[in-house]
Design a protein around this nucleic acid. Structure first.
Lengths: 187, 187
DNA sequence: AGTAGTTCTTGACCCACATCAAGCGTGATC
DNA sequence: GATCACGCTTGATGTGGGTCAAGAACTACT
């Protein structure tokens, strides 16, 4: 649970008093491999910090899943768009491995925002960071070839190959499992 | 200038007192057609609200520009990633038509965030909205064919065709000008 | 251990869209 | 109103990566 405090404090400092107001709002959730953390059509109720495990963000598209991203230790997890907008999720979140997540309920977070300007700031900085990540990924998607995207991911997150099925990585890189397999062989 | 107040009040209510603190931080900027609003490599100094005109967000990629998005009346404008991170811009912002923009300086905005929790909230809600827009676009990019993307854009923003060169729209839709031209003919 | 359901690999083939090239507006500049 | 510079169109040709298919290697379940 201290993980939550450390994670928040990467953005804003917290006094012990502030933390003791915040802490009770966070709860631990366990998901077994393959479990659905948020399904398409439902409204995401929580925002999570990953304590352990790997999770996948994806959406189904004629037959197979298109993979949008992964979350792991220390990163955020959840269907943010649904969480923020309170609209049905377009993406689903699945536990790729057994996972322990620390989550906060939407209403509780809004209450914290209302009571504590420091939390409002945290919320802003957090979403700003998400935007920056998206911008980087957008450039890479647009300007790199299939092979370059493969190289880039393997350079940055080689561990992913051990953690999640190749077809998911392939989909994340916007290529078919066949192409991914052929690229691996070439190296 | 009242446009700024109205735009902010789409997210949070402002008292006259609050507004009179905020207003002096916003300034009007004029750009003529073709002018560079933010160049690649420089740090975006301002966050803009569009008073009039159309602007383009793009980045160069072997020879031509890859177009990421457009801004027009009432929407936000600028290289947000650079503005938020204070790092050199990866994208450039160009005036497609003569443009009048209302802008606020980075430091001034941070000062407002510090002084006024209501502005901090505005900032949070604003970036949340930007993220939601990205999610929608990401789904469309991934799940629609070139022709479907064309149809979707023509249904939603037919006016764009009158405002910006076809090659930019083509690039925004991730296709060559030739493909775009052929799609138009088919309709 | 045996069966069934996945995922990964490999080969053969295909196609949507890109690339290349040439001619045609159209509007800015002198 | 001639010249120049782009943007748009149209046709011919090329190709990266997708699709289809079939077998091999895992994994999970009983």
């Amino acid at each position: 649970m201290d993980l939550v405090r450390r994670t928040i404090e990467r953005y804003v400092p917290l006094t012990d008093a502030e933390w003791s107001r915040i802490a009770p709002n966070w709860q631990e959730f366990a998901f077994t491999r393959g479990a659905r953390i948020c399904g398409i059509g439902q409204v995401e109720q929580r925002f999570y910090i990953v304590k352990s495990g790997v999770q996948r963000l994806s959406f189904p598209h004629d037959g197979n899943d298109l993979c949008i991203g992964f979350a792991y230790d220390g990163s955020w997890c959840g269907e943010f768009a649904s969480f923020l907008s309170r609209k049905p999720a377009r993406f689903e979140v699945t536990a790729v491995t057994d996972s322990a997540l620390l989550g906060i309920q939407y209403d509780d977070l809004q209450q914290l925002y209302r009571e504590m300007p420091i939390m409002e700031r945290w919320g802003r900085l957090l979403v700003e960071e998400l935007i920056l990540g998206r911008a980087v990924r957008e450039v890479e998607q647009l300007s790199l070839s299939a092979e370059e995207r493969y190289d880039r991911l393997m350079a940055r997150s080689p561990h992913l190959l051990q953690l999640v099925p190749q077809k998911d990585i392939a989909s994340y890189l916007r290529m078919t499992p066949e192409t991914f397999s052929r690229l691996r062989k070439r190296k």
